Amino acid sequence: MKKVILLTVAILGFGFAASAQTISKNAIGLRLGDSDGFGAEVSYQRALSDNNRLELDLGWRDGKHYDGFKLAGIYQWVWNIDGGFNWYAGPGAGFGAYSIDNDYKKHGHFEDDSDTFVFLAGDIGIEYNFDFPLLLSLDFRPELGFGDDKFDNNDLDFDIALGIRYQF
């Protein structure tokens, strides 16, 4: 009888220890990537339950001959790998706009262009949740854009970024 009780306590103990790690209720920081021309993004994550969250990213670019912004919203499922390591994936969408000044010379002539666009996105990544309120992540986000797209004539973008966020 003692062995059965001891075995039951051990199984329950391992079961509670193996349960999924809860994610932080809020996290804010930067998502640093640049494959789509919008540079660093201000990133905010809001937990919706113990293992899913919503991420909002606002990126902007301001240069001598152009400026633009992009807002993305991603729904993420989060799975624990081990300890503070998690991996996550999810779908999303967003919109943006850019403007090119007529002083910009492209293909041998000066261009003055602007466009608004919408896009669908996916996101997959890995993160480490430290014991103090810091979250580091590395993710891959393919984006399929819809708009006039006169700027780069490419509707598919692959974005890889490093995220640094403060959790609260």
Score class of each variant (00 low, 15 high):
Met1Ala: 15
Lys3Thr: 12
Val4Pro: 11
Ile5Trp: 09
Ile5Val: 14
Leu7His: 07
Thr8His: 03
Val9His: 05
Val9Met: 10
Val9Arg: 07
Ile11Phe: 14
Phe16Leu: 14
Phe16His: 07
Thr22Leu: 11
Thr22Cys: 10
Ile28Met: 10
Leu32Ala: 11
Gly33Ala: 02
Gly33Arg: 00
Asp34Lys: 14
Ser35Glu: 14
Ser35Cys: 02
Ser35Met: 05
Asp36Phe: 05
Gly39Ala: 04
Ala40His: 05
Ser43Ala: 06
Gln45Arg: 15
Ala47Asn: 01
Leu48Thr: 02
Leu48Trp: 04
Ser49Glu: 15
Asn51Cys: 04
Asn51Val: 05
Asn52Ala: 02
Gly59Asp: 06
Trp60Ser: 08
Asp62Trp: 04
Lys64Phe: 14
Lys64Tyr: 08
His65Asn: 14
Tyr66Leu: 03
Leu71Asp: 02
Gly73Ile: 00
Ile74Lys: 06
Trp77Asn: 09
Trp77His: 11
Val78Glu: 09
Asn80Met: 07
Asn80Thr: 15
Asn80Val: 05
Gly84Ala: 03
Tyr88Val: 00
Tyr88Lys: 00
Ala89Gly: 12
Gly90Leu: 05
Gly92Pro: 10
Gly92Ala: 09
Phe95His: 01
Gly96Ala: 02
Gly96Met: 01
Tyr104Phe: 11
Lys105Val: 06
His107Lys: 09
His109Tyr: 07
Phe110Lys: 15
Phe110Thr: 09
Glu111Arg: 08
Asp112Glu: 15
Asp113Met: 09
Asp113Arg: 05
Asp113His: 12
Asp115Glu: 07
Thr116Ile: 01
Phe117Gln: 09
Val118Trp: 14
Val118Ile: 15
Leu120Thr: 03
Leu120Ser: 05
Ala121Trp: 00
Asp123Glu: 13
Gly125Phe: 00
Ile126Glu: 00
Asn129Ile: 05
Phe130Lys: 02
Leu134Ser: 01
Leu135Gln: 12
Leu135Glu: 08
Leu136Met: 06
Leu136Cys: 02
Leu138Ile: 12
Arg141Thr: 13
Pro142Asp: 03
Leu144Asp: 02
Asp149Arg: 15
Lys150Glu: 10
Asn153Gly: 14
Asn154Gln: 10
Leu156Asn: 13
Asp157Ile: 13
Ile160Cys: 09
Ile160Met: 12
Ala161His: 05
Leu162Thr: 01
Ile164Ala: 08
Ile164His: 02
Ile164Thr: 06
Tyr166His: 05
Gln167Met: 13
Gln167Ser: 13
Gln167Leu: 09
Phe168Cys: 14
Phe168Arg: 04
Phe168Val: 14
